[in-house]
Design a binder for these strands. Structure first.
Lengths: 190, 190, 190, 190
DNA sequence: GATGAATGAGTGTTCATTCAT
DNA sequence: CATGAATGAACACTCATTCAT
C-alpha cells in the first residue's frame, strides 16, 4: 500500500489558507481548494472528514501556533507591563511573519463555521494572561474592570492594526507598534 | 435608482437585514430574500442591479443612518472629551435600538462584498470628528498619533462590546458603557 | 410571467417511468431524468420538491389510475366470483395496456423509497374488495383465512404473470388469463 | 475463483449479506462491505472481479443452498402432494432459519444486477420438481397448465408470505403454513 | 412594473475502481 | 496476498440570474 503523503496534506492546508485569503471563505469551495492543491476533491476526504473538518482543523492549528508565539518568552517574574508588552510584540511579529495565517483566522471568526469551535478551548492557551490580569488588578496596577474589557483594549487593537482590510496603510514598524502599545496600556492601567 | 413603489423597496431591505441576521450572509440567497419580502426574485432585479448591489446598498444605507445617529446633537463648542463621549453613547443607543441593523454591518464587513465599498465614502460622514481629533492633537489634549490609531481605540471597542458573538455577556447598561468610555479616553488622551 | 408548462411536467413523468423501466431505479438519477425530459435538472425542482417527491408522486399517481381501472364496472350485486373475475381481467387489461406504468410500480415497491409511502393509503382504494371478501367468507363461498392470504392468491399471481422479468414468455392472451384466474379461484374458494 | 484464505472470502460474503439487509442494496458500497469484512477494498478485488461479480456470486451461492434445503428428503416414491408439501415446508424452514439470506435474494431479484443472472441456471436445481409436475399432469392429479403457472402458485406465495416487507404480520407458525399450502394445492390440483 | 418559470454552473460528497508498496 | 491512498465521474441539490408574459 501507499503511505499517506504528508506533502499532500500540507498542500491542502496551504491551498485552503491561500484561497480563503484570496477569494474569501464563501467562495472557497472544496473543488477549488482541491484544484489549488493539485489533488482530486475525493482525496481531500481521505485527510478530512468533510469541509467543516478541514476548515476547523486548519483554524485550530493556526490558533495554536499563534498562541504559542504570543506566549513565547513568557516570564511570570517580570513586571506586568513588560509581560503584556512582550505579548503585544510577539503577536505583532507572528502576524507580520504569517499574514495569511492571521487573515485566515479573521475570516474564520466571521464565517458560519466559527460557531462550531469551542472558543474557550482556544482561549485556554491564554490562561496565564488571565492570571496576570487578576494580579494586576489586585496590586492596583490595572483597572478593576471585567476581563473582557481588558481583552478588548489589549487584543483587538492588535488585530485591527494588523488586518490589512481594516488598516491598509499600517506597516507594523517598531515605532508604530510601540505607540499603539502605549495607548493600550493607558487604557487599562490604573 | 428610484422607483414607484417605495413600500416594496423597503420590504426588500427589511427582508435582507432580517434574513442575514437569522441565517447568515452565506445562506441568504436572492430567492429567500424575495420570498421573505413577498416579492418575486425577478422584481428584486428591478430595484437592484444584482445581489451585490442589494447587499452593498443595504450596507451603505445602514451606515448612513448609523453615522447620523452617532453625530446627533454634535456641538462643536463643547469640550473635546464631551463631544467624543456623546458620540460614544449615541452609538451605543443606536446599536441597542437597532441590533439587527448593526449585526448586518458586522456580517457585511467580513463578507467578500465588503471590499466593494469605498470605505472612505462611508467614513466621510465622520469628517467633523476628524476635525475634532485634529484640534485635540493641536491643543495637546489628545495624543499626537495617526488618525487610525484614534479610531481604533474609540470605535472598535464599541463594536466589539456590542457584538454578541464577540461579547456574549455584555448587557450595555449605562455604567458599563461609562467604564468602557473611560478606558477609551485614557487610551487617546495625552 | 410564464405559466407552468404542463407538457413539461408530463415530459418529466414520462421520462421518469421510461428511465426506471430501462435502467432501473438506482441508476435513474435526477440529471438523467432531466436530460431524457429535455429539461434542466433545476427545472425538475420547480415541479417536485426533491427526487423522493418525484418518484413517490409518480408511484401514487400510477397506483391511483391502476386501482381505478381495476374497479371499473364494479357491481356489488354480482356473484362474488364474477366480481373478482372482473377485477382480475381489469387488472390484466391495465397492465397489458400500460406495461411501463406497471413495471414502474414493481420497481418502486422494491426501492428504498417504497417505505415512504403509507401503504394503507394506497390500499384503501381496494376497500370495496375487502368487503366482498368478508361477505364471501360469511356466506361460506370463500375460505375463512386471513385477508392477506386471499390477497396473495388473487393479486400476486397477476403481478408475477404480468411482470416480464418474472414471466418473460407470458403473452396475456384471453385464454391464459382465464386459466390463471381459475387457479386463483380454486385457491380461495371453499 | 479459488484462493488461499477462505475465511476471508467467507467474511466478505457474510458482510455483503449483512449490509444489504441492514442498509439495502443501493447503499451497500464496496468500501462499506470491505470495512464490515475487516478487509481493504482492494482485497475484495482479489476475490471478485468487480462489485457485480461479488453480488451475483453471493446470490447464486444462497440460491444453491436454498434449493438444496428445499429438496432435502426428496423422495420420488411419495405421493405428489406429499412431495410438494415437503418442499413447501422445507422452504419455510430455510427462510425462517436464514432470514438474512432470504432477504438478500429478494433484494437482489429486484436490483438491476438481477438481469445478469441466467435464471435457468438457478432453476435447474428444481429439475426434479419439474419432473414431478409433469408426472402429476400425466396422472391427472395436477391441472394441465404451463409450468410457470404451477410455479407461481407454489413458490411465490411462499416468498410473499415470508417477506416481511410484503407480509409484516405473518409469523410463520406451523398452522398458517399448513393453511397456505392447502390454498396453493387447491390452486394446482385437478 | 411585476411575475413565476426556467436554467447552466456550481455546491459538498460518495462511488467503484486502480495504483504503488 | 494484501493494503490504504488516490481518483474522475457521478450524485442530489441550490444558486444568481434571465426569459416570456
Amino acid at each position: 500500500m501507499r503511505h499517506k503523503d504528508e506533502a499532500k496534506q500540507d498542500a491542502i492546508i496551504r491551498a485552503t489558507v491561500k484561497l480563503v485569503n484570496e477569494i474569501g471563505f464563501v467562495s472557497s469551495s472544496v473543488s477549488k481548494i482541491a484544484r489549488e492543491a493539485n489533488v482530486s476533491p475525493a482525496t481531500l476526504y481521505i485527510y478530512y472528514e468533510n469541509k467543516e473538518d478541514l476548515l476547523v482543523s486548519t483554524y485550530i492549528d493556526i490558533k495554536r501556533r499563534m498562541s504559542e508565539a504570543a506566549l513565547e518568552g513568557f516570564d511570570d517574574g517580570l513586571p506586568i507591563r513588560d509581560i503584556i508588552k512582550r505579548l503585544w510584540f510577539n503577536l505583532f511579529r507572528f502576524i507580520a511573519d504569517n499574514p495569511g495565517d492571521f487573515q485566515y483566522t479573521e475570516q474564520f471568526g466571521n464565517s458560519p463555521y466559527s460557531s462550531l469551535v469551542d472558543q474557550s478551548e482556544v482561549e485556554k492557551h491564554f490562561a496565564p494572561l488571565v492570571e496576570i490580569a487578576r494580579r494586576g488588578i489586585e496590586r492596583k496596577i490595572i483597572k478593576d474592570v471585567p476581563l473582557e474589557f481588558l481583552q478588548i483594549f489589549i487584543f483587538y487593537p492588535i488585530f485591527v492594526l494588523a488586518n490589512p482590510r481594516l488598516c491598509a496603510g499600517f506597516e507594523g514598524d517598531e515605532q508604530s507598534v510601540e505607540t499603539a502599545f502605549d495607548m493600550a496600556w493607558d487604557a487599562i492601567k490604573l
